[in-house]
């Protein structure tokens, strides 16, 4: 089971994603934005960071990278693709997911351990969660406000494509408290918070049990492993 993580100029969390994949029990494969080679991976993670310095729009230039032609093709054929933060921004810019992400409504960068609710546990990346399970993973962004026109929002809500919703605090002004969404097929998922930073005791968000022990992010990766091996 090989999961590719694409590194773009300005990616920050690519190695964290690789580590999460390893801890979940799969083999991480480093992929490079400038190539067309997916190296026979079974799934792909678009990591967080500030690709191309967020110039033009967040994720916009990266969404036109050479390797994204292969990612779009593979995603349309059903390969699981997860976009985290800047990766989510790339997925909307590449039109693999609808809507857009804009500057936080309060105008500031926000970093917090964020509670989100798993609204759809039938996607390739969420099948190890209970329906409506509330989890805590880190969030860190300046442009995480999810927006879409009224028709798109209605469709997302009506068809159960809102995958994650912020609970307690809406950290960026996202419409309908949307933290993440999926495509119809459930193989492409994008979210602003960072599951790859909550995969190992001692290095995750605080829990009621102990400091930095949150591991809720690990099941994103065990979910996709279960899906591919099924």
């Amino acid at each position: 089971m090989r999961i590719g993580v694409i590194t773009f100029p300005g990616s920050l969390d690519d190695r964290d994603a690789q580590r999460a994949i390893r801890l979940a029990g799969a083999e991480p494969v480093a992929l490079w934005h400038g190539e067309h080679d997916l190296k026979k991976v079974d799934a792909i993670v678009l990591p967080g960071g500030f690709s191309y310095g967020d110039y033009l729009r967040c994720g916009a230039i990266a969404s036109h990278s050479p390797i994204m032609a292969e990612v779009i093709d593979a995603a349309n054929k059903g390969m699981p693709v997860l976009g985290i933060c800047n990766g989510f921004q790339m997925l909307v810019e590449a039109h693999l997911l609808p809507g857009g992400l804009i500057r936080n409504d309060h105008g500031r960068f926000v970093r917090r351990d964020q509670m989100i609710r798993v609204e759809n546990n039938r996607t390739d990346w969420t099948n190890k969660f209970d329906e409506s399970e509330e989890i805590v993973i880190p969030l860190k962004n300046g442009e995480g406000g999810y927006i879409a026109d009224a028709d798109t929002l209605e469709r997302l809500e009506g068809e159960g494509l809102v995958t994650f919703r912020y609970v307690g605090v809406n950290p960026n002004g996202s419409l309908n408290d949307i933290a993440g969404i999926s495509n119809d097929r459930g193989n492409v998922v994008g979210l602003m918070p960072h599951p790859e930073h909550a995969v190992e005791r001692g290095f995750g968000p605080n829990t009621t049990e102990a400091m930095r022990c949150g591991m809720d992010g690990l099941r994103f990766f065990t979910s996709v492993i279960a899906k591919v091996l099924a």
């Binding site: 729009r57 036109h64 857009g100 804009i102 026109d149």
Partner: peptide, 8 residues
């Protein structure tokens, strides 16, 4: 196609 995002 590129310089703007028609969604926003």
């Amino acid at each position: 196609d590129m310089l703007s995002n028609q969604v926003i």
